[in-house]
Structures are given as C-alpha cells and as structure tokens.
C-alpha cells in the first residue's frame, strides 16, 4: 500500500485570467515523505499547487489515492484530505490565532465526527507552542514566522492524505527557517508533503524526491539527493550556482531584504488585492 503514490497528476494545464500558466504538468507524489517541487521564479510552482487545489481554472487528470479530484470544487478537494499552506501564508489577519485555527477545523471526512482528534491537537501544540500562547492575538499582528506557523498549524490540525506547502521559509530569518524546517520534518512523518521550496538546503534536508518545473512543464523528476548533489544539473535546472549551502544564503538574503522592505500585513493585503483584481 505504501508503494502506491498518493497523488498522480497527468497533463495538468491551467490558466490565470485567460493566460496559460501551466502547459503540461505530470508528476507523482509518493505516499510518504517530502517531495520537493523546484524551479526558478515564475515557472509555475505556485500555479501547480493552486491548480491541484482547484483555485485556478485547470484541466488534466488529478488522482488522490486513486480517486479523481480534478473536477471537484476547492472545498471538496480539501475535504478529501488535502491540506494547503499557501505562498505568503494567507492567514486571516483580522481574526485571532484561535479563530484561524478554529476555522480550519474540519468535521466529518477523515477527521471523524468530532472534528480534530486529540493527537492532532497535541501535535500542533508540540510543534508550535509559540502560537498557542498567542491564541487570542490577532493574526495580522504576528511576525512573519509566527504567521507561517499558524498557516502550517491550520493544515496540520486535520488528518490529511497530503499537504501542499508553498515556500514556507520565504522571508524568514535563519533561526525561523530552522524551526519551520523542523516542524515540516515532524509533520512529514504523519502525512506526505508536496513542498515548493527555493531554499535548497531545506529542500535537501527534507525531500526524498524532487520534481523540477520549467515554463509550465516538468523537466526533471527523481531522487532529490541525486539532483541536488549534482552541481551542474542544479545550475542547469534551477539557475542557481555553487554549493547548495551557498545558494541557500544567497536566497536567504534575497528573501530577507524583501521581508524588511515590506510590512508583513501590508504584503498580505496586497496579495489579496491582486487576487481579487484578476479573478
């Protein structure tokens, strides 16, 4: 049973505002561990996750545990057991942390009749003690790292078959990158993860497999270590140079400067605006 992939995607195409952003994406996500989805900026990683979620117009076949989900509305896809941690977190800034989490609690489905299981509550409490302490604080007033933890916690509260996580370390300080990575590592022990990650050190530590996108297509798939240890392929496929360690710090500084130049909550609302305007 562990040999069957949890997610099988064939010929996925997607459009945003009438513009094609995915040409033909086919990939498989094994039923355990982390699968990294890599590629340069703008190649369609986020769009792939959004297409899987049904958040943008899509076609192609998507099978979750052997059941087709490509015609389902977003909330139905989620109810089948898919957790989503979007790029830029998208926590509800005007809601408290507790409300963010309460909103995410799903009843029925694989979560059982009583919503969240005690084990899950415990898991989230262990992983993110920081945000549990702040449960009555408005999420918009949290730091970027804390918001990321809320976003991860929202997905981890429920029993999912698969998590889709989009650049969870984007814009975080090195210490927070470590914390988030630890959390993901623990999470991956209970649920398979498809992880978009620009920080190659993180990807290397977590991922068993890697899929590389370019121009809305899959250009490489295989064990993550094989790819990330091969410097020339990293340069060719991901467009970053040097040791994985170096490329990490490079990305890090880039992300950080972005983070500092923009207030978090403002960033959040801008994201939302853009989505509204184009929808």
């Amino acid at each position: 049973m562990s040999t069957r992939p949890v997610l099988v995607v064939r010929g996925l195409t997607a459009r945003i505002a009438g513009q094609q952003v995915l040409e033909d994406v086919s990939l498989e996500v094994p039923a355990r561990g982390v699968t990294a989805l890599l590629g340069r900026n703008g190649v369609g990683k986020t769009s792939t996750l959004k297409a899987l979620m049904g958040l943008i117009e899509r076609s192609g076949t998507i099978e979750l545990d052997g059941e087709p989900v490509d015609r389902l509305a977003t909330h139905k896809v989620v109810q089948r057991g898919v957790g989503y941690v979007p790029e830029d977190r998208e926590v509800f800034g005007s809601l408290t942390v507790a409300e963010n989490l309460r909103l995410a609690e799903r009843s029925g489905g694989r979560g059982g009749r009583h919503g969240v299981s005690p084990e899950r509550r415990e898991l989230v409490g262990d992983l993110f003690p920081d945000i549990i302490d702040r449960s009555s604080q408005r999420a918009g007033t949290l730091s970027g790292g804390q918001q990321q933890m809320v976003a991860l916690a929202r997905a981890l509260l429920n029993e999912n078959r698969l998590l889709l996580v989009d650049e969870p370390t984007k814009g975080l300080s090195p210490r927070l990158v470590g914390e988030v990575t630890d959390a993901l590592e623990k999470a991956a022990q209970v649920v398979p993860v498809l992880l978009v990650e620009q920080n190659l050190t993180v990807a290397r530590r977590l991922a068993g497999d890697a899929v590389v996108l370019d121009g809305g297509r899959v250009v490489h798939a295989g064990p993550a270590a094989d790819l990330l240890d091969d410097e020339s392929r990293v340069v060719a496929l991901l467009g970053v140079g040097g040791e994985p360690g170096q490329s990490q710090s490079q990305h890090q500084s880039q992300h950080q400067s972005q983070d500092q130049s923009q207030d978090q909550s403002q960033h959040q609302s801008q994201q939302h605006d853009t989505a509204e305007a184009t929808s």
Binding site: V78, Y84, F92, A275
Partner: peptide, 12 residues
C-alpha cells in the same frame, strides 16, 4: 478578508 483561502480550508 480572503474568500479563496476560506474555500482552501475546506469550507463551502
């Protein structure tokens, strides 16, 4: 605040 994220939490 953010309608699409609400659906992405499994809510109709």
């Amino acid at each position: 605040e953010n309608r699409s994220m609400v659906t992405a939490l499994g809510i109709d």
